[in-house]
Design a protein around this nucleic acid. Structure first.
Lengths: 349, 349
DNA sequence: ATGAAAGCGCTAACAG
DNA sequence: CTGTTAGCGCTTTCAT
């Protein structure tokens, strides 16, 4: 309780300055002196007060994480990546949940400024461009998953088009000829990107995804259930279904089961999110796109650390997805020589 | 960037000392002087450096949150409560995920000590007594959800027995006569507590829960599915099923549907966790016990704040659950005069 | 009511 | 290689 560098210096019989150098491994000094200092520090249980050192060094080794709309299902993975990246520089994360409240957000920004954080990560539930978090903040800011509407900011997010492309490619590999897409609200950029990606994949194989086979709705099991039933009635020839997320896919799987359509034999199914809890216990287990959020978190963390002494590159960077192949659409790349040149799929993590 | 209290003092034409008092609303001073100071601060965009002030005041207005095993499904709610409680005192949360790694945990504790946090919250996925986080930490520690094995520590967790009691009572209200319990591994204290609570409720109504109607397994949909099927085969007379969590309940619901048992008419179903995403889209929607984790978080936060100037009360405190009533076991307290004296149920939040 | 001075715990020049 | 000195930005006696 309250052992300072003075106590250490005194115990090691050196000056405070020498103690400081010794403890931080800076400068040159006799090995035994350093050892004496470290020894004393150890015995006294000395922990340098970082608030004091940050006063002189300018660095706090703390970065803020501001979420605008709570901690969602995606946050834990992202957070894990961020923490791992930051821990390489012994940085800590200060958590701020603004809850869609501008006043609260302003308040947190002030607090982070007062704490002189080394940087800030802004995150949110949707990839859509959102209002920037404030102008002239005295620290670098990186948007993670969510993106800033201002092109001068730096955002790192998921390449949803790539995800959609992967999903459609997987259905094609499975041999599907008529593919439909059941997804969330069209107002989400992620939704539109995934559609676009799926269309690209189909086009690459001389197929298409006509508008009437893209059904926008809600990101929920219910929507998946009813959406799938409606689609089935309308189009008896469907043999592939790409769902906008795993909840929809789960609902769709239930719907298919309820009318005796076998997965994957009669209809192959691909989801999105690789939300293991849901995907793995769907019957059959769900093949689903993984947004690699842990990796996203790592890249965001590393980018922010780099920003401490380098300028941030403005713009939006989109990181690729991968796909977890399970029973609902099990095709592997080797099943068909036509896919021989393909990049390997990433197995279930 | 870097506007200090000196700049403010200078702009307001007062001394640094006066500026400090003015900004913090301390001491007495002429109203117009104070106004001048605040005005200057506003114009310069001054944000007092908290690291500097903590040096003299001793308070950092920061508390650590150490999780031992990642951010689970429960963390977001708990975190929300903690944040709300702390924000009343403008405290911020420093996040540390030790990932079941003792070295990492030690490292984080050192880091938190170096940062001179005002307190620490330790959390984890299970309520079972866990090894204390370290001895002689220079700040108060409160265990949240998880509990410390050391009785000198302060732990606040969920009253699982109460939850089990609520679940069984709800099934009784529904008129169930033969109730079974399908739950997770017996090694969890929460599992045993819930069983005990359910037994108490049944006993209060002259019934019992015999050992062969308590099935221990895994906390998974699969376990729920197969467990329910096995139970059904063994006991044709079951009319109430209490599941150890919502995943099990979901699996059980699927199993019941697959053999044509109607919920709640033939069999009432109660889950645990009130994990809305799952519970609300089960067919029919799940009646389920809510652990009130937001509330738990609040209490933990408030307790820790109080601990800054008061001693912590040692021991384990268990907070009551509530129950979210939905279609799988819809009985209300008014359905039967025998329940007239009951406390009201808490509606679906 | 205001300001000068000392100090919180630590780091970083610069001498010696 | 080590110690002296001078802050970092802020708060807090204690004079005035």
């Amino acid at each position: 309780m309250g052992v300072t560098i003075r106590d250490v210096a005194h115990a090691a019989d050196v000056s405070v300055a020498t103690a400081s150098k010794g403890l931080n491994g800076k400068g040159r000094m006799r090995a035994d002196t350093r050892e004496r200092i470290l020894q004393a520090a150890r015995e006294l249980g000395f922990r340098a007060n970082r608030n004091a050192s940050s006063l002189t060094t300018g660095r706090t080794y703390t970065v803020g994480l501001l979420t605008r709309d709570g901690y969602g299902r995606f946050t834990p993975q992202l957070l894990g990546g961020v923490e791992d990246a930051l821990s390489a520089d012994t940085c800590s994360l200060l958590l701020c949940d603004a809850r869609r409240d501008a006043v609260r957000e302003r308040h947190y920004l002030d607090s982070l400024t007062a704490r002189r954080v080394d940087g800030l990560i802004v995150t949110g539930r949707a990839t859509d461009p959102a209002p920037r978090v404030g102008r002239d903040l005295p620290f670098p800011v990186v948007y993670a998953y969510t993106t800033s509407a201002d092109p001068r900011d730096t955002s790192i997010t998921v390449d949803d088009a790539h995800g959609g492309w992967l999903a459609a490619r997987q259905l094609l590999r499975q041999g599907c000829r008529t593919i439909a897409h059941l997804t969330g609200p069209r107002s989400y950029r992620a939704v539109r990107d995934r559609v676009e990606g799926a269309r690209t994949a189909l086009a690459e194989h001389g197929r298409e995804l006509p508008d009437d086979l893209v059904v926008y709705g809600q990101f929920s099991e219910d929507a998946g259930y009813h959406g799938a039933r409606a689609l089935l009635e309308r189009r008896r020839d469907l043999d592939g279904l790409f769902c906008g997320n795993d909840q929809i896919a789960r609902g769709a799987a239930d719907a298919l089961a309820s009318v005796g359509v076998r997965v994957p034999d009669d209809m192959a199914l691909v989801g999105f999110d690789n939300w293991t809890l849901l995907a793995a216990s769907t019957r059959p287990p769900l093949t689903t796109v993984d947004m690699n959020l842990y990796q996203l978190g790592r890249v965001v963390g590393e980018t922010l650390l780099r920003a401490v002494d380098t300028e941030l590159e403005p713009g939006v960077r989109r990181l690729p997805c991968s796909i977890a192949v399970r029973g609902s659409c099990p095709a592997g790349p080797g099943d068909d020589p036509a896919w021989a040149g393909d990049a390997p799929l990433v197995p279930d993590a």
